[in-house]
Design a protein around this nucleic acid. Sequence first.
DNA 1: CCTTCTCCCTGCAAGC
DNA 2: TGCTTGCAGGGAGAAG
Length: 280
Amino acid sequence: MPELPEVETVRQGLADVLEGQRLVAVSARRPDLRFPIPADFQSRITGRRVASVGRRAKFLLIRLDGDLVLLSHLGMSGSFRIFSGEAPPLQPHDHIELQTGAGVTVRYHDPRRFGFVDLSAAEDTSVHPMLAKLGPEPLEANFTGRYLASQLRGRATSVKAAILDQRVVAGMGNIYACESLFRAGISPRRTAATVVGKRAEALVSAIRDVLAQAIGAGGSSLRDHRQPSGELGYFQHRFAVYGCAGQPCPGCTCDLASSGGVRRIVQAGRSTFYCAKRQR
DNA sequence: CCTTCTCCCTGCAAGC
DNA sequence: TGCTTGCAGGGAGAAG
């Protein structure tokens, strides 16, 4: 499910119901997700008040009173749902449940269990092993064309693989990497080191634009992903290339036969979608 | 260091 | 219908 826009949507939904509230009941219904759930998870967070719900890359950071941060990553199939009042029966793969003093239930659901939770002391969160090497947030001011070009310099891999590297830019995933490259008119197969100057500026702009627009649309709902409220995101209807193999490229005015349409290739084991005519 | 490959896990769709 | 196969939004760790 989740790339940066989806995680940001989840963050907003959780912030609405958790911030300022005390966690009056906590349960972990199995001992592990991708990694073991900390043994003292329940006892350490029960009774604490949520100060804020933040995000770094694709990680949620639920800051609790008393110098403690609950870190959460949704992996491929993780989702949070919020229920006010009486919650419906637990479903398979509902792994973690939080209840607030205001009677709200928050459930973490994750069929594939590639997600995880961890606890971190607040002053150590930025050096947590999962967060320490992350690159800049793509929507913040320090993510610039000059910075991106400096990171891609000397790299022989494809630009698409490079922007999926969380050390280069934090929070990019497969969908928005494809969509960003399409918008920038850059082939995903292009050698990373050749993305310099105006090309790098164009790519940074495209990344910022597509992520901001996706957040504005409530993220993308593929498969069963929803916002925590249960509402669907709708940015998936605006994909230009992702999942559109064989369809006409929305940027080409010529017919399908002469443009070739949207192609699917595999790079570093992940599907890439692009238009070979419009992206160079 | 850089890059690619494999694996973790379940569910779904497509193909036979 | 039922089985097999491939694929899926992520990322760690090993291997080259």
